[in-house]
Design a protein around this nucleic acid. Structure first.
Lengths: 361, 361
DNA sequence: TTGTATGCGTTATCAA
DNA sequence: TTGATAACGCATACAA
């Protein structure tokens, strides 16, 4: 009786597909079927499948044969339910469409794959509500661990995570008041590199296009900018400080505001790639030319920044490495190894956008 | 006896975390705990939780209270195991770092979220082997359906998918020999629009930077290009045809080859955004200027293409819509509704890169 | 080395 | 409307 609803279900599901293929194998081949087909007990089949050494060569052989013949695929959910390990990690990025986070995701995914963990990638879309939804989903899916580039002040489900004791790692960003292992970049150093470079190029008025103060990197870069400007004796004009939301449009708006002042800056520093691109557009619209009329340095080294005209000078961090390290960190927690937060260095890649001339290298 | 290993496990897992917080609630609150706390049976608790109308107001109230008090979160795995529905769809894109696919992913994710499905996003990294790995993972995770932008000729697990009868939808790309519902763009129309535009601008020698012939969009655009060139009476010179791999570097190489010929093209058409960016870099390196010296039209309207200098003329498809439609399609299959493949129109967005002058609109 | 039996957390069946 | 109980697919303790 029990299996009938399931079959009906499957039938209904494919009713209109009207495919002409052979009904080969049912989708739900269980370990029981395998055991039967191999002429062994489920216990033996299970042992063979999970690599338990307590198996005979014949058993292994017959079970393997049955597996390939029936097209058996273990049910990860049942397995996880029984063994309290899902072998899945959740990765929550702020915005998949931001190339920087796409790179982080890629690095994280590859690292997880290497450890034979599956990655559940979710996209908060720079929105705290969506972050909570996906965090909730991760929790109900019982992922073994979570890597997140967090939004906001850390209310809502971020606290629930702590309570649920799910292994958690912050990547790129952190949240105040959370004692969570993290892999971040040395933002202060990055800003210092950029400002020092622009100062060396003779600029004294640098316009800053910052990120939102609700994000740790936004705050860190802002503070570092102020410090660096003071340190290098540049103009500490509040008019030179703007803030966007890490998205393209806000970069354009910020650039417009900066360039609209009576004493506009001669150089621009954008706190992320998307805002840099927005600024690029605004500068062009104003009929000015990056490199020649106005220097531009951006955070985040996106692959194609070097292909632009002019190529963009950037403060780069290795996003892939950031993602990979974060995953390794969360696996360390999961598997009970000692964990250590990491701060990765940033480096300056000088190109024409800040010098007006082809780079030396 | 049975629960002891689990507790040990949890303990080991957090041993070195040495956090000082209160042990508030154990992570694994089950429905049993909820029922006990509420003074009802698990059956009643389950009914309340799943919105079964056969519940009394008091029962609902008490269970809800217990849920919030204990911080209960249903176990999606157990739920899926029992109900044969995971409420998860797998999304496999060719390359997350390609902005076009990032947009597709975003659209798909939002659509799934709207239907309260979770999206498992995986990245094939333009690699058939990785595609198979993730397909395998989707299968073992027993996702309810899969949306994929497929790689290669469709060997390996793509066939296994068919056999497993997992609802499947192709997005953007298709694979010959598979009778699978799909959401694609009208590539032929897109190419025609681009070629017609360039012809109208007076170009007779258009260099084509195509995609790999192993991908359906690569083939479709290639064939359409040949047809359009013939139709408009332009130079049908084989030297004007190149092929890349949908990645930046190959676009640069293709541009170099095209521009190196004795009779170089006066316009370039790139079959995707990343290759267009690569071409952009190569053109700059050769000291030429897009728009003025050489026209460029690209496939895929990436947000920031309009911000570049000069802004890029593109053949655009709405990637978000592509992703959203694909998800809706797979949900249609899952939930037994009639399904219908869709071909979305493309449209030409004319900007300076192909005209040398600011666009009218 | 193997088989049997139990339980993981949940939903669904069946009586009450 | 409710409670007891079986079953989902799998892994493991225990006995053989």
């Amino acid at each position: 009786m029990e299996s009938i609803p399931r079959q009906q279900d499957t039938a209904r599901q494919w009713m209109r597909a009207s495919r002409t293929e052979r009904p080969v194998v049912d989708s739900t081949v269980t370990i029981k079927d395998v055991a039967e087909h191999a002429g062994v007990s489920v216990g033996t089949a299970s042992r063979v499948l999970s690599g338990n050494p307590a198996t005979s060569a014949t058993a292994r052989e017959r079970v393997q044969a049955a597996v390939t013949e029936l097209g058996y695929r273990p049910d990860a959910r049942a397995r996880a339910l029984r063994s309290a390990r899902s072998h899945a990690v959740g990765l929550l990025v702020s915005d998949v469409r931001n190339p920087f986070f796409a790179d982080i995701a890629h690095g994280a995914e590859q690292a997880a794959l290497g450890a034979s963990y599956v990655t559940l990638l979710a996209n908060a879309n720079e929105d705290t509500a969506q972050q909570d939804i996906y965090l909730e989903a991760f929790l109900t899916q019982r992922v073994d661990g979570i890597v997140i580039a967090p939004q906001g002040e850390g209310g809502g489900n971020l606290r629930a995570l702590e309570r649920a004791r799910t292994p958690l790692v912050f990547v790129d960003r952190t949240v105040d008041g959370f004692d969570v292992p993290s892999v971040t970049a040395d933002n202060a150093q990055g800003v210092e590199l950029a400002v020092a470079h622009l100062a060396a190029e003779g600029h004294t008025r640098i316009g800053y296009i910052g990120g939102p103060s609700s994000v740790s990197t936004g705050r860190a870069r802002h503070d570092a900018f102020l410090a660096a400007v003071a340190r290098h004796g540049l103009d500490e004009d509040p008019d030179l400080i703007t803030a966007g939301d890490f998205r393209s449009a806000s970069g354009g708006a910020a650039a417009a505001a900066l360039l609209g002042h009576r004493r506009p800056p001669t150089a621009l520093l954008a706190a992320d790639s998307l805002m840099a691109v927005g600024a690029l557009g605004e500068v062009r619209r104003q009929g000015r030319r990056i490199g020649a009329d106005l220097a531009l340095v951006a955070f985040d080294d996106i692959d194609w920044f070097g292909e632009l005209d002019p190529p963009l000078t950037v403060v780069a961090h290795d996003a892939r490495e950031l993602g990979a390290r974060a995953v390794r960190l969360v696996l360390d927690i999961i598997e009970g190894r000692p964990v250590e937060s990491a701060v990765l260095p940033m480096r300056l890649v000088v190109r024409e956008s800040s010098t007006g001339r082809p780079a030396a290298d």
